[in-house]
Write a protein that binds this DNA or RNA. Structure first.
Lengths: 194, 194
DNA sequence: CTTGCAACAAACCGATCGGTTGGTTATTAT
DNA sequence: ATAATAACCAACCGATCGGTTTGTTGCAAG
């Protein structure tokens, strides 16, 4: 990797971390520069402005990370158990800082969806993609599921519950509440089967 | 109501609206002053700083509004149907701007829970109170419910799903998705009964 | 009549924001 | 060797932030 590429990647990684912790609007460029050990000129050589940097973080850091965590769960032979294992795994592996900071994509959705159209559309695309992944996974085992299920609605419900769970554990700084919600969600998911 | 009281209330109402639309950190004092038609001296006569103003909005505007919307649903003879009616009513009465802005308390939770301890604790208190209300309402009809239910977990799950639903409809600007999640949630809630 | 305080207004403060500008190296092509 | 370009630095810009200070009203008690 060239020096320039390395610098760019470092900016992306550190900015992703800052946004995750403080949100986009409250993330300061000077903080990023200090942590990267570069000047403002360097940053503006690689990115035309703060918003473009945010978009790049979204697409090159958050989206791949997001897909990499959901994909394996949905590619199991039994996606129902795949999802449940995935969720309970999230509980167990969750350190406090993660519980506090929440899902980067959901955070950006809450903060930026009605502030900037560029963010909103990117988030929307990602949500539809995730919904599609879940629907596909459930469709594959449709014969084992209860009839007359609206799989798309089910998928939205699953995602909404997970996001809501992280939101709840944010204020309590307590992953037990996350666990409670996940337990109920798993019971709901397993109940989808015949 | 005295003039001073009126001014204070106007500040609270307009600030509540601004925070609802832009979040706390991005809400500018000068915008509030312009909309109120007052000077900065007037604002700082009534509130010692921006944070205290935010706390006052939380306690004097958001919390009463929040309780006033949930309480009636939970005081029905059948809180199960009370909640379902409440949720579907939210869908129908929801204008686009509400869908976009989300629940003020959930927004503040997402934005401020890990930024300011004062907000976090106030949000936590409110969440526990709501959880208690739901648990109490469900306990009242415990005989009609399935046995071995962890009512507190159920309550958290309900709240998480509703919050997640608003989050999803934010990015899509589409209350249909909210409707989908609510439909699934109602089916989950009704399934609590024997 | 005037003294005093409640209720504001207006101007100003330092700090910080995102962004720009003009230069300085290091590398590569000719 | 030289020209060009990629990659970066340091200083600076206007705008805006939350917050302070000083000054000005209107009313109410003594």
């Amino acid at each position: 990797m060239s020096d320039a590429e390395q610098t760019r990647q470092k900016i992306l990684d550190i900015t992703a971390d800052e946004i995750h912790h403080h949100g986009f609007q409250s993330t300061s460029l000077s903080t990023i520069l200090n942590r990267c050990g570069i000047s403002k000129g360097a940053l503006y050589y690689h990115f035309s402005n703060k918003l473009e940097l945010g978009y790049a973080v979204f697409e090159e850091v958050y989206v791949p990370m997001f897909l990499a965590t959901w994909q394996p769960a949905l590619s199991q032979d039994d996606p129902i158990e795949g999802l449940c294992d995935f969720f309970t795994g999230m509980c167990e592996s969750m350190v406090c800082s993660e519980a506090v900071c929440g899902c980067p994509l959901n955070n950006l959705c809450e903060e930026m969806a009605n502030v900037d159209e560029g963010f909103r559309l990117r988030i929307l695309t990602m949500q539809q993609k995730l919904n599609g992944l879940i629907v596909d996974a459930l469709s594959a085992i449709e014969d084992d599921l209860r009839p007359n299920l609206q799989l798309s609605h089910v998928a939205y419900f699953i995602v909404a519950s997970v996001n809501g769970a992280t939101s709840l554990s944010k204020s309590s700084r307590n992953k037990e509440i996350f666990q409670y919600v996940i337990d109920e969600l798993c019971s709901y998911i397993r109940n989808l089967k015949k």
